Structure formats: C-alpha cells, structure tokens
Amino acid sequence: MYEQHFPHKRYKETLAFLEKHVPKDQALLDLGVENPLTKLLKKNDYQIENTKGEDLDLDFSSVKNSSAEVVTAFEIFEHLIAPFNVLREIKADKLVASIPLRLWFSPAYRSKTDPWDRHYHEFEDWQFDWLLEKAGWKIIDSKKWTNPVNKIGIRPLLRKITPRYYMVYAERIS
C-alpha cells in the first residue's frame, strides 16, 4: 500500500469519511462542477457524475434526472441562497455533505474577482443539522476538523484549534 499525497487536508478527510459510509459500487451525483476532489474520488474508484454548473437555487434538473444512489455536496451549500430547495429535490436516499463552518474570528468568504465565488451562508453545525432535518434527512454520522495554516499570528493559532469543516452522512427520512 502506498502513501497517497493529498493537496488539502479536507481531501484526505473527505475521502476517509466517504469510504466509511459509501461503497464504491454505488453511483454518486456530486452537486457542483468537476473539480480536483472529483478527480481524486474517481482515482479512488468512485463512480461519480457532476452537475453541469447550473444555478442549483433555480434549476434542479440534474438532481431530478439522476439515478445516483448517493448525492454528495462538498462545500456547495454555503454558495446557495436557498439550499433547502435542492435538498428536498434529491431522489437518492443517501447524502454526504460538507460545509465550511462559521468562524467567529473571520468574516464570510467573498472573492473580490469572481462574483459566483462567495459564501451566502456560513453555518454553525446545529444550523446545518436543522436545515437537513427540515429538508427530510436524518444525520447518521458527522465529523468536524480544523484547517491549520502555516502562518504566525492570532488567526492562524485559532485555525489550529477551531474546527473549520463539518461533514455529515445522512439518509432520507421516509
């Protein structure tokens, strides 16, 4: 067995969490366009298809037309104005989703150059849990982890001890 290099700690954490809950023979629909994490999951034998870049606040066609057994949503719900709507439209019975957590010492992320790369929401864990529950999902497992940076200062120190990411495995409530 070889040691796999991960460009980000969250990739390593995401892959481990997915392997814990989702067999590799189950088809995945990932909300969001193909990205480096998608490529990593394919490299690790996951059958994954991505949405096409449509506005998931308004267009649910990829979700409605998918026959995937599992939907994944890695750091996308914070970009949506109304994530509740797409969560209700998912046909799959399993969901693996991650979000960046709201940090009290840092403002919500907003790109100065890309008008689409902004966080409309940065959730606390209980808020995300409530959103999933109201949308018809039961959380089976969850995990949080930090995102340390190699810098000196108060914020970098806080990033070493404050969880930044939150991931859940949930199943549809009948």
Rank of each mutant, 00 (worst) to 15 (best):
L37W: 10
L37K: 10
T38G: 05
K39M: 09
K39S: 14
K39I: 09
L40I: 08
L41S: 05
L41G: 05
K42A: 05
K42N: 02
N44D: 09
D45K: 12
D45G: 00
D45N: 12
Y46F: 14
Y46N: 03
Y46K: 00
Q47A: 08
I48W: 00
E49L: 13
N50P: 04
N50A: 02
K52E: 12
K52I: 04
K52Y: 10
G53Y: 06
G53P: 02
E54N: 05
D55N: 15
L56S: 01
L56C: 01
L56R: 00
D57A: 04
D57R: 05
L58H: 14
L58W: 12
D59W: 07
D59E: 13
F60D: 07
F60P: 01
S61F: 09
S61E: 13
S61Y: 06
S62P: 10
S62E: 11
S62A: 12
S62K: 07
V63T: 08
V63K: 03
K64N: 15
K64E: 15
N65P: 09
S66Q: 06
S67Y: 13
A68K: 01
E69D: 10
V70M: 06
V70H: 06
T72F: 06
A73C: 15
A73W: 12
A73F: 08
A73L: 10
F74T: 00
E75S: 09
E75D: 14
E75W: 08
E75Q: 11
E75A: 10
I76Q: 07
I76W: 01
F77T: 12
E78S: 02
E78Y: 02
E78P: 00
E78N: 00
H79A: 02
H79C: 01
H79Y: 04
L80T: 00
I81S: 14
A82I: 14
A82M: 08
P83S: 01
P83I: 03
F84R: 12
F84M: 09
F84W: 12
F84A: 13
N85E: 13
N85V: 09
V86F: 08
E89Y: 14
E89G: 02
E89A: 12
E89R: 14
I90C: 10
I90A: 11
K91E: 12
K91Y: 04
A92N: 08
K94L: 09
L95K: 09
L95A: 05
V96F: 12
V96S: 07
V96I: 15
V96W: 09
A97M: 13
A97Y: 02
A97F: 03
S98R: 09
S98M: 10
S98Q: 08
I99P: 10
P100A: 13
P100Y: 01
P100T: 09
P100D: 09
L101K: 01
R102Q: 12
